[in-house]
Design a protein around this nucleic acid. Structure first.
Length: 358
DNA sequence: TAGATTTGACCGAT
DNA sequence: ATCGGTCAAATCTA
């Protein structure tokens, strides 16, 4: 019985992904100056919807049963990111399809490489306030507890835990919990949507030049960028209140919704995720080669979607984007990049601009 | 002075 | 009883 369900879900998943692929192809053919914006928007919406469904299924990973017998983790390459883990896709892919209806909440973890940043509240685009620190049994370094600064003002319940890796002190493990419901979150979400569109635009323009193409780009783009590449290593750790999270109404207090379709889907995912992110210096290194957009960092920053994660960004806002990580594992955006891999995000967004996120 | 951080106490889960 | 997570008073800082 359960096996049948699993097969059905697997087929559904494949179907959704295949559909997304086909739609992306259509989109590619539409990426011409003569193409109407409506057509492109419609295709993007469909693609995102397909990936949304597929990813929703994947997000079942971590249900109680799965937790009882943790999925085998494979150290990603085993060197610089000792604690970065992935699900062993061969032996555990079936768990992905396990449904859990009793869980009231779901979480997810992403591991990214970051390096020398402060142990605590590294910038990830959101404002965090430290509310505790604990020595963890078996860990060489204390764990810091942070909650969204807007918890009181806006009731934002997002929290994160930061802990330096035992095996590699240069790595930080950041576990995000809960969703951002603050205005900041909405800004980031919209930024992500913008980025997608910008990406398409870039695709249409065939690699716009850095200097000359200095049109005003949405500041939030950066966050999107992170969303795309933030998590080289993502691990779903726990699943909770999937229903609540996904369908919980989300408000966009101040930012006009550029694309309702995209925004809603993307964001509902974005704000619910729990993930762990490890950071490497290279990840935020301003000296990263521009030509190496999506360049692979020493931390093997290529996530499970095949996306490189080494992103050049201003240190101050980098982490914000990492919140977008939510989008890394849950947003269809990440997958889109597979199709639009020629889009040069870096050349299209002023990541170096200090006021990028102001 | 308001907001952020520190840190020991407290509480719930196991 | 132990541990992880949170609270909240004291302290710091811009």
């Amino acid at each position: 019985m359960e096996k049948k369900n699993m097969e059905f879900e697997q087929k559904t998943l494949i179907n959704e992904l295949t559909q997304g692929k086909e739609l992306a192809k259509q989109l590619m053919s539409q990426l011409q100056p003569s193409s109407s914006k409506e057509t492109i928007d419609a295709l993007v919406g469909k693609i995102l919807s397909s990936y949304e469904k597929a990813l929703s299924m994947l997000n079942w990973v971590g249900e109680p049963k799965a937790l009882e017998s943790p999925p085998s983790m494979t150290s990603f390459e085993n060197t610089s990111s000792p604690r970065s883990v992935f699900y062993d896709q061969d032996s555990n892919h079936r768990d992905v399809f396990k449904k859990r209806k009793t869980m009231s909440k779901w979480t997810e973890k992403i591991s990214v490489c970051l390096g020398t940043g402060p142990e605590g509240p590294m910038e990830d685009g959101y404002s965090w306030r430290k509310y505790g620190q604990k020595d963890i049994l078996g860990a060489n370094h204390p764990r810091g507890y942070f909650r969204c600064t807007h918890r009181k003002a806006q009731g934002c319940l997002a929290t994160k835990q930061v802990q330096r890796s035992d095996q590699d002190p240069s790595l930080l493990e950041v576990t995000y919990k809960g969703r951002h419901t603050c205005s900041r979150a909405s800004q980031l979400a919209m930024a992500s949507v913008s980025l997608i569109k910008q990406g398409f635009k870039a695709e249409k323009n065939q690699f716009p030049h850095h200097e000359e193409g200095k049109e005003e780009k949405p500041k939030q783009s950066q966050s999107t960028f992170f969303g795309l590449g933030a998590g080289p290593e993502v691990k779903t750790e726990d699943l909770d209140t999937r229903e609540d999270d996904i369908f919980q109404p989300f408000s966009f207090p101040s930012t006009p919704v550029e694309s309702e379709n995209l925004g809603n889907h993307f964001f509902s995912e974005m704000i619910d995720t729990d993930f762990t992110v490890s950071f490497s210096p290279s990840f935020i290194s301003p000296t990263s080669s521009e030509s190496a957009y999506f360049s692979v960092s020493p931390c093997h920053n290529i996530n499970s979607f095949g996306l490189a994660n080494n992103v050049k960004t201003p240190e101050s806002d980098l982490n914000e984007i990492l919140s977008a990580p939510t989008s890394v594992s849950n947003s269809p955006i990440g997958d889109l990049d597979l199709t639009l891999d020629r889009v040069d995000f870096e050349s299209n967004f002023p990541f170096d601009s200090p006021e990028f996120f102001t």
